[in-house]
Amino acid sequence: MAEKVAVEKKVLSENDKLAAEIRAQLKKHAVASLNFVSSPGSGKTSLLEKTLEALRNELKIALIAGDVQTENDANRLTRAGGTLVRPLVTGGACHLDARMIARVLPEFELASLDVLFLENVGNLVCPSSYDLGEDMKVVLISTTEGDDKPLKYPGMFRRSSVMVINKIDLLEFTDFDMEAVKRNALQINGRLKIFELSCRTGEGLQAWFDWLRDFVKTQKNS
């Protein structure tokens, strides 16, 4: 005779516990935190490069750059003026998890920081399952991708607070339907804050910088 035993446990309860500890630590030191997610090649590293260059004199920024195999992204970001760039090579894993962040967090002097950027591995599925203790997720897509990306990866767009549409300078060469992508994304998540920009030409970046500066200030004072 078989017998059923109730368990009722989250599979990722260990991850969630660690994420809650990370969140509490960041809150304690008033450090805002954003988790950047996208497909490979949407421009996470480019957006972070531009952001570090623009805001490094105003904000004390630290960055954990997840990469499956190389430290290339971290090297690029260090050149962009991120003095506190920590590469995190996942060795094949398709996402960052809270354990990886908890392991490297002690390397930062949190009390002196304003904001922590977490650059996730390029993937719109797996990182959505793992809370890293961040304040919010920023999802990027670019105009060279399909405008049905939000419909294909609803979990990620539902869990994100900001959507950045990059490479708008290439819009005229693609069949990307800007209105459709915004409609699709807002259908999944009506609260998404949307930015349209080009890291290459700089168009639209100022609005992103302004929003980010305000967000960090709000988090600091909360």
Partner: peptide
């Protein structure tokens, strides 16, 4: 309204185990 809270659908849970009796 698009101001809606997800109620279910994000679960990733172990609900129960089935063992040989007596467990």
């Amino acid at each position: 309204s698009s101001a809606v809270e997800t109620y279910s659908g994000q679960e990733l849970e172990i609900a129960w185990l089935e063992t040989e009796s007596p467990h």
